[in-house]
Design a protein around this nucleic acid. Sequence first.
DNA 1: TCTGGGGTCCTAGGACCC
DNA 2: TCTGGGGTCCTAGGACCC
Length: 425
Amino acid sequence: MIAIIDCNNFYCSCERLFLPHLDKHPVVVLSNNDGCIISRSDEAKLFGVEMAGPYFKAKPLIQQHNVAVFSSNYGLYGDLSWRVMETLRIMFGKKKVEVYSVDEAFVELDGYKPEYLPQLAMEIRQKVELWTGIKVSVGVAPTKVLAKLANNLSKKNKEKTKCVLVLDTQQKIDAALRHTKVGDIWGVGRQYAKKLNEWAIFDAYQLSRMSESFAKVKLGGVVGVRLVKELRGEPAKDMEDDLVNKKMIATTRMFGSPVTNINDIKEAIATYTSRAAEKLRRQNGAAKTISIFVVKKAEDHNVNFHGAAVSAYTTLPVATSFTHELIKPAVEMVDKLFEAGNIYKKAGVMLSNIVPDESIQGNLFKSDTKNSGRKLMEMMDNINFSQRDDVLKFATSGTSRDWKMRQELRSKRYTTRWDELFEVS
DNA sequence: TCTGGGGTCCTAGGACCC
DNA sequence: TCTGGGGTCCTAGGACCC
């Protein structure tokens, strides 16, 4: 059996943890740039505040109901996430836990007696809350897809389930499948949900009865086949190692305000490249390909607000993790893409073709320049990590900040900054 | 005249996830 | 005035090889 542990309204819960007077109060958290709503407390959901909706549209509703609003504070969420995951690792051992996202983890529960599972699931919930202050929901079932489904149902009826649901018999599984619309299945997005409805398949039970050949042809090949198997209780998605390194690393942002000047774009690209290179070094990787893109502001933002992106990439002669070696080609590509007269609203950098970094081992046999580059990077990373953000940076990254993102409502980083510690008076 | 069969690698793009 | 920021996996099709 497999459990999924999912933090309830995670970002909102993190904010509340340090402001207990907001406990029963509606809360929302905004995306970067305070653009749209990415987490809502139950109270805010009741008022009809929509997920992923733009903040400016929801603002009247939010003010009317006196909803507390926060800019996203990823330092805080990351730290609390680590505490939740560590609790699970202590309970079950590292090998049994697969961290799936910042607020979700799968736990393999082989070897437990079936009749003990409901109690175990409840213990998970209680211990995580006791140790971290974060409330979680727990779904348990024979496969990952069914565990997710159990988890969703447990949240829909919190009074009855206490946020814990175990699907341990075929009857319970069938009932759960019938209560789940196809669009609510993990792995079925908007496109597939629409098609399935056109073929008169509306709930998960109906989908689970379809043939594998149907799934293969209609739902994206092997992906669809795995999905149908999992719905039937046959495990088709394995537990995965946590230590797998990223195959692609991206840093992309909307600008705080629209940009028309090529130098501002270059500064932004240089800054994003620095950030991406840091992530790359953290996994001891080196990238062979760097690509960048810029997005024009659409004239009519009601039509296709994502705008038109143009991109370019450079394949490097040798894979590298050095910020200065990545910034140069990145900034040069800006010259290719930039067109004077346009208004830009977003840009991004992506590193791919990632391989293990050879320069880490290197000492005797590497040239001096390679070693000094490595030392420089280590020094920069250490200082930037221990001090404030970006004490040290490359000059290309600039000092103006017109393009930087807005974050007007961020809470303190209570758990990761000495000068922002939570105070008890 | 006629037009094999098998394979790999790469890229672009679609679909999905949180 | 104004709509996030990351990622993953898979498939199709083209180039190229023997």
